[in-house]
Design a protein around this nucleic acid. Structure first.
Lengths: 344, 344
DNA sequence: CAATCCTTTGGCAGCGCTGTCAATAATAGT
DNA sequence: ACTATTATTGACAGCGCTGCCAAAGGATTG
């Protein structure tokens, strides 16, 4: 009898086939197109595979079929807890599917992104998920040549490479600032850090809302390229106050900055919302628990990751979505920090 | 001339070889053992590969060599922001190496862990990183049969499967509670959620410290199986207060719970630290920024992920560490929330 | 100068699986 | 009953690369 077992003791498909009394081809077919097998053989291959504890060799499969079951995921940062929610959705959606997530970190660098895309292309992924819509022409070209479904997440915009699931950061910021204006706030600060493309668009939304109310003043806007954190939020707020002591509200580009601002207010005995109103962005869990509770713009991060991967998996199976661009929207969560002032 | 280019237009190694004027074997050797090539050929293969933009086919390589350059990483949760720091270290350490991280989520389930380990084994990873030390006998058996370096992280303990990098959660908790006792606190609550093995050991450390001071009382201990969050922290603290209104300090199993406790104190006008001292665990960034700043036990999560992967990569290269178990320790960060009371 | 050893190179047989095509069996149509 | 289809199955040739072994030089040694 010919060699059945591989050197390493691993069970090969040939062994399953011979135990089931079928050809290698039929055994292989059991895993690819089980419906093409007669019920009898299907059953026999299944039980043989089960009895032997067969696990397919993915490398051999990938080589022979020229396809993989890998979904490449490009994320700009692992630090940012926004992405940890997205990733939860990503992994949850991939769970139970045959697909494997291959996560890589671009560190907010478009060159790194280009390099990683080339690397992915060489491995023929089944699908690809990329963050944002600001890919370089080179990156777009690489993706276009990849012949696998691709989904862009976090934002929506014109000219999707393939599919998109996100929301309008500009509109979300606009609505937050419009809310503050509606509450009677006039001198609304903007606190931004690590000014990535999405944050830039939030700034754009802020500008649009302020300009519409004829309240826009450059001195209200304070940004820094350094990464965000709660401490940075406190420092930024302090700096803003030094520059524009008359502000009566701040829109923070994320919740860490907002929490840092709240702490700084507590430290300086500034009453929130009576002296200063605060609105954050993302609506992390702690915003509702803070004292006072902090207003924020809820974004659907988990759903974004989950739906993006689900769309990808469907597209890999040939089911193109009806609409390739999905806008998950946002919701303004108004809490104590941006409520009307107590009457004096 | 024989087929050079693969159907998909991908450049194969044979093409590089012929452009460089060497045999396929030599070209292959350039990527495996470049030092075995004569400088001249090495140079020619390098420039040919570069000119053609050659990217190796990893599936073919894996199949032929019976090895992969994949490091499997098993993490129990993607929600827990403790792990996002670990993962940052993991990905940073893998960056620049030929190794690829394959991340999977066990959802705190040992059965899931077992299943995932079997799946990994079938793909012959180059190395493996698993969380914690509470693997089932089955899981240990699978790992032992895997013939690749394995590192356990988050904790230290006896009988490493192979290597370990972590710290003693029990000692860390002990030192936090001992600190509170040293500050004159007598009725110290314990707030725990999602009681995973590491949290259990923190409880053990708390018990040890309290018992040593003859202060241990069951009513001080409040735990819940539900996942942690800031809100849950607030609720737990409220419940603890209802049960033991006389407590003068709380040790929280993580910083989210601690922050929730602080907020709940603010809500109830309980003075921190005068009425209640608070100590958290992990020392997330916001702890220092809170008002009052919150004491915590600093754990080296980033370093844990980074060092674990570095050890793995070294071990794959044949460089076994001098000591297979690395204790990264912890540091008690004493801040305002556990300072002495103001004199009355 | 021959014998020996080391360095460098190439030929070749797979790695475990899938895609293609042909063969056969079963079913339907006339 | 006989042919046309369709449903099942199997044989076989690779997928692109590496590991092994042998060959060819070159250097070294006695």
């Amino acid at each position: 009898m010919a060699r059945q077992r591989t050197k390493s003791g691993k069970i090969r498909l040939a062994e399953v086939a011979s135990l089931a009394g079928v050809s290698l081809t039929t055994a292989s077919r059991f895993f690819r197109t089980p419906e093409a097998l007669s019920p009898g053989k299907r059953e026999r291959v299944a039980s043989a595979a089960d009895k032997l504890g067969y696990e397919p060799d993915l490398a051999a499969r990938a080589l022979a079929s020229q396809r993989t079951e890998v979904i490449g995921v490009l994320i700009p940062s692992l630090t940012n807890n926004v992405f940890s929610d997205v990733l939860r959705g990503v992994y949850d959606a991939a769970d139970g599917s045959p697909f494997t997530i291959q996560l890589v970190n671009t560190h907010y660098s478009v060159l790194q992104e280009e390099k990683l895309l080339r690397l992915f292309r060489a491995q023929r992924p089944a699908g690809l998920m990329v963050t944002g819509i600001n890919q370089t022409p080179n990156s777009r070209a690489v993706m276009q040549s990849m012949d696998c479904p691709i989904v862009q997440i976090m934002e929506t915009g014109p000219e999707p490479i393939d599919m998109m699931v996100g929301f309008s950061h500009s509109d979300a910021a606009f609505s937050a600032v419009a809310h503050l204006i509606a509450q009677g706030r006039k001198r609304i600060g903007f606190l931004g850090a690590r000014m990535d493309p999405r944050v830039q668009r939030r700034l754009e939304g802020y500008r649009r809302a302020m300009k519409a109310a004829a309240l826009l003043e450059p001195r209200f806007i304070l940004t820094t390229p350094i990464p965000t954190s709660v401490s940075v939020g406190g420092v930024l707020f302090g700096d803003l106050l030094a520059r524009a002591p008359d502000i009566d509200a701040v829109f923070c580009i994320n919740d860490d900055i907002a929490l840092g601002t709240l702490f700084e207010c507590q430290r300086r005995q500034i009453a929130v919302p009576d002296d200063i109103a605060i609105v954050g962005f993302n609506d992390l869990e702690f915003m509702a628990a803070a004292v006072p509770s902090l207003s924020s713009v809820r974004t659907n991060r988990y759903e974004m990751g989950r739906d993006a991967i689900a769309m990808l998996i469907a597209a890999i199976a040939g089911e193109r979505p009806a609409r390739p661009v999905v806008d998950l929207g946002f919701e303004l969560m108004v809490r104590q920090s941006s409520m009307p002032r107590h009457s004096p």
